[in-house]
Amino acid sequence: MNGRLLLTALATIVVCPCIGPALAQTPNPELEACRTTGLLALRERNSAIKDITLDVDGMTVAKANTKVEDTPIKTIIIGDAYLEKGKKDTRRTFLCLIGEKGKVLLTFFTDK
């Protein structure tokens, strides 16, 4: 009986690290909306930008109950984003404001 318990415990230890990264890769709809909207806005100014990768582990996603003038802000996201330009990536600080019903109000990337 102790052998089965030990094997179960070891299997749990071995399986858990595999599950963690898979869950971390599940896209947050708010992050994906910000990434997509930001990519479209950046491509309008610079067609060399191929993609954006968000540093999900370092992102801060904060629920908010505030307004900018009369516009409600429900979520604020800030962290690092990597802009893919050809063969090199450029790290930028990323800010996204989300309003009611998940609408992206603003995506902002620092210049450098």
Rank of each mutant, 00 (worst) to 15 (best):
M1W: 08
L6S: 12
L7W: 15
A9S: 06
L10F: 15
T12N: 14
T12V: 15
V15S: 14
V15W: 11
V15P: 04
V15C: 12
C16G: 03
P17N: 10
P17F: 01
C18P: 00
I19A: 15
G20N: 13
G20R: 15
P21G: 01
P21E: 08
P21T: 03
L23K: 09
A24M: 07
Q25D: 07
T26R: 13
T26W: 06
P27K: 09
P27Q: 14
P27D: 09
P27R: 11
P27F: 03
P29S: 12
P29A: 05
P29H: 05
E30T: 13
E30I: 08
L31G: 03
L31A: 07
E32I: 09
E32C: 10
C34G: 12
R35C: 04
R35L: 10
R35D: 03
T36D: 10
T36A: 07
T37P: 00
G38M: 01
L42C: 08
E44P: 06
R45K: 11
R45F: 06
N46C: 02
N46P: 04
N46K: 11
S47I: 14
S47T: 11
A48E: 15
I49C: 10
I49G: 01
K50V: 11
K50W: 06
K50Y: 02
D51H: 09
D51M: 07
D51F: 06
T53C: 04
T53F: 07
L54W: 02
L54Q: 01
D55S: 12
D55C: 01
D55Y: 09
V56Q: 06
V56D: 06
G58D: 15
T60D: 13
T60V: 13
V61L: 14
K63G: 09
A64N: 08
A64I: 05
N65K: 10
T66K: 13
T66H: 03
T66C: 01
E69G: 10
E69P: 00
E69S: 13
D70A: 13
T71E: 03
T71L: 05
T71P: 00
P72T: 05
P72Y: 04
I73Q: 02
I73V: 15
K74A: 15
T75G: 03
I76F: 05
I77Y: 01
I77A: 08
G79Y: 07
D80C: 01
D80T: 11
D80S: 08
Y82D: 05
Y82M: 02
L83Q: 07
L83P: 00
E84K: 14
K85G: 05
K85C: 02
K87C: 00
K87R: 15
K88C: 02
D89H: 12
R91W: 10
R91V: 12
R92M: 05
R92I: 08
R92Y: 11
T93L: 15
T93P: 00
F94P: 02
L95G: 02
L95C: 02
L95F: 08
C96R: 00
C96N: 08
C96S: 02
I98V: 15
G99Y: 00
G99I: 02
E100H: 00
E100G: 02
K101D: 09
K101N: 14
G102Y: 05
G102M: 02
G102K: 07
K103L: 10
V104A: 02
L106H: 08
L106D: 02
T107M: 01
F108K: 15
F108C: 06
F109Q: 05
T110F: 09
D111G: 12
K112L: 14
K112T: 14
